[in-house]
Amino acid sequence: MNFLGLGALCWRFTLLSALWWAWLGHDCASWIVGAPAIAVSTAVSLSLLPPLSIRISPVELVSVAPKMVWRALIGGIDVARRVLSPSISIEPSMLRYPLLSLPGNTARWCFLHCVSLLPGTLSVSLEGDEAIVHVLANQDRAHRELAKLESDIASIFHHPSRHA
């Protein structure tokens, strides 16, 4: 196993162990089940998603995280306001958004996961280089939000966005 593979193995093993610890770590007996489960999960993870050569910038991650929390807050308030108004104010549409500045699959899937937390947008699928996004209302605003998110994700994955 090369250095890259060993690094990925250590990271994923540590992450899965941390998750088990978070739920059941206080109970020592739980590790009888936990340790094999973590080993199998690490193996499955490596076979489904081979080690990646991309680098994630921790500095950018820390600077983007509060923005994401803020957007998720606005997103939640927006959807709550819409469903609680007497006449539900939605005008749904499907949008195709080209992911030009996110060449890697990991960056794209990361983008799709974050899209559903933004106000008014829900990721539906990835077809070729285009993300298919369901928009609850207001396509223009959705476009602006997606462009901002795209440049943020691109900065984390060390690919400067063309939209930025």
Binding site: A72, L73, G75, G76, I77, D78, V79, A80, V83, I90, P92, S116, L117, P119, G120, L122, V124, H134, L136
Partner: peptide
Amino acid sequence: YSRLHALTKADGL
């Protein structure tokens, strides 16, 4: 699709 909007965003928040 619109139901998923409510579930992911409002419940996550």
